[in-house]
Design a binder for these strands. Structure first.
Lengths: 330, 330
DNA sequence: TTGTATGCGTTATCAC
DNA sequence: GTGATAACGCATACAA
């Protein structure tokens, strides 16, 4: 493993000159530049970024914390983050938190320990105080899910109006008994989606019925369970709005097992437009978040913060899209 | 941002002592230890790992290169890798390669630049020479997919016998015209799965028919396309073995659209047991790789190599499991 | 245009 | 048991 010293010695120049060539400083003759580059090749020299990073006190590395990589929803977002990062000379490292606070803190330490230049939270578990605190010291951005009240930038869609639109779609199809499949967590998106559902009902003179509301954990199995509960009701719903595609698909599965036809006997709307939504039978009506753009915007915010162009936390809202497929309209 | 110097000064000790406390060296009095720890807390001091890493010339960081994180197959493997890594004081960073060699090389540079202590390839794109070369210099392990002939450790299942088992299952159900949905890449697993299919046919006196072989890219859409081609045949197959669950599901989708019943009119076997396999309608018969264990084993190999306990590349084969579900047996 | 010298924050070797 | 101090590999201010 050769160092910059070895290159300097063999080329007969100083380490400063080699360093200049490495960072292609303009103030170096073409000949010496060639000479140095040759020597670098000859020695198969690779700069040790540990030294460079310490000296520059930056790593060109961005942390992305996800609850779990297996959720296909995150794939598109990560792509956006990566594209913007790479375009700006940054690398991204994805980290599974398993929705575990302690795991999240370990990764936040990487930031405090200067092993990363910034972090993007996909679904922060730490409370808003802790988030605000680290956000003051380092470049931190929340993407999609976010803690309201934390003084930290975030980018997301307008979940309230998305849920409103989904519910209104079902109402427009003539449904009166519309089930809601949500989650019992403190994410603002969750709450806003439930609020959007309720508001749409109210605006169309459909009385809210608490028995039509069930909760899951975003996952397939919880969707199946909730679906069974809905099917077991004396007066079961004729339509269903689930705040995740996975839960929507789970509910459809259990409805089909009961012999119900989708959408004739039960119309279903999901949320997220995961790739599987268009593969399922029936194809799922859902709300599509601009995943790629959300990722790009989040990474942009981090970069602006790193560069000191952002003195105030910024809240960005991107447009969503409502996609009508077989699960609501034949 | 306080440094070890600040702590030393405020505590009235030397940086050496502070460093000893940080690395809990035994040779330090309980009182000075307490004193230092108090000062650390008072200053809210966080050791700068950039300095430590340079000094120790290690990062406690492992790179995991995946073709794309959206493939649910990788989730379980990554979990295994992470668990073993964390247990040993290592962090893992996941990196999307998009099956792009140049992207892969960028991440390999992180290894050469000492920003990572080792790397696990999930599906190497670089050729075996390049792989061998970097494997000689650094701790490198291949997981699941691997380049044969590269002198680099790997861990995987026995793809030949898995494919053999899948095909034999279909034969046992009475099928004679069994389609094969593979891929045209150079991965050894791909080739072995096709060979296993052929061998099973031969062993049961079913002549191999090239028209019953189609190729895709592991993805859903390519499965749909191949499915349509199969359905369009004069004498279409009554069973299908796809080397990925996504392709299997795609093929089922197009078969169902043609009005075929699964498994009565077409029995289908997939490969990988991704989480969707059990969610789909019908639930998919498939081969389950021991994802978690594969990840653990791969990380173990990296660690042993880092510790110098591995002087020879090692090839590990783990057991797989054949899971029979609705798509082949009602 | 190039070289010298210093320091980034830490660990570890050597004294005491 | 503790303290000076020299590295680790690199970038850069300053000098020449």
């Amino acid at each position: 493993m050769s160092t910059i010293q070895d290159v300097a010695r063999l080329a007969g120049v100083s380490v400063a000159t080699v360093s200049r060539v490495l960072n292609n400083s303009p103030s170096v003759t073409a000949e010496t530049k060639d000479l140095v580059n040759e020597t670098i090749k000859k020695l198969n020299y690779q700069p040790n970024l540990l030294g460079r990073n310490l000296r520059r006190s930056q790593t060109k590395m961005i942390l992305v914390l996800l609850p779990n990589i297996s959720n296909p929803f995150y794939a598109g977002i990560v792509k956006g983050i990566e594209d913007v990062a790479h375009k700006n000379g940054y690398n991204v490292m994805l980290c599974n938190t398993d929705s575990d606070v302690s795991r999240e803190r370990i990764y936040m330490d990487l930031l405090r320990n200067r092993l990363s230049d910034g972090v993007i939270f996909m679904a922060p578990e730490v409370n808003k105080e802790e988030l605000t605190e680290i956000g003051k010291l380092y470049p931190v951005v929340q993407c999609c899910e976010y803690k309201e009240g934390a003084s930290v930038s975030h980018v997301s869609i307008d979940n309230f109006s998305a849920a409103y639109k989904a519910t209104r779609h079902l109402i427009g199809l003539g449904h009166k008994r519309i089930g809601f499949l949500g989650c019992q967590n403190t994410f603002i998106s969750t709450i806003q989606r439930e609020n959007g559902y309720k508001k749409a009902l109210a605006d169309h003179d459909i009385p809210f019925d608490q028995t039509l509301v069930k909760y899951g954990d975003y996952g397939f199995t919880s969707g199946v369970r909730a679906g069974k509960q809905f099917m077991a009701m004396k007066e079961r719903p004729t339509a269903l709005f689930a705040i995740s595609d996975m839960m929507a698909i789970g509910a459809i599965k259990s409805a089909k097992e009961e012999g119900l036809r989708i959408p004739e006997d039960l119309a279903v709307v999901g949320f997220d437009n995961i790739s599987f939504a268009a593969m399922y039978d029936p194809m799922l009506t859902t709300i599509s978040q601009p995943k790629y753009d959300l990722g790009c915007a989040a990474m942009d915010l981090v970069l602006r913060r790193i560069r000191g162009e952002l003195d105030q936390p910024e809240d960005l809202f991107l447009e969503h899209e409502f996609i009508i497929r077989e699960s609501t309209v034949k």
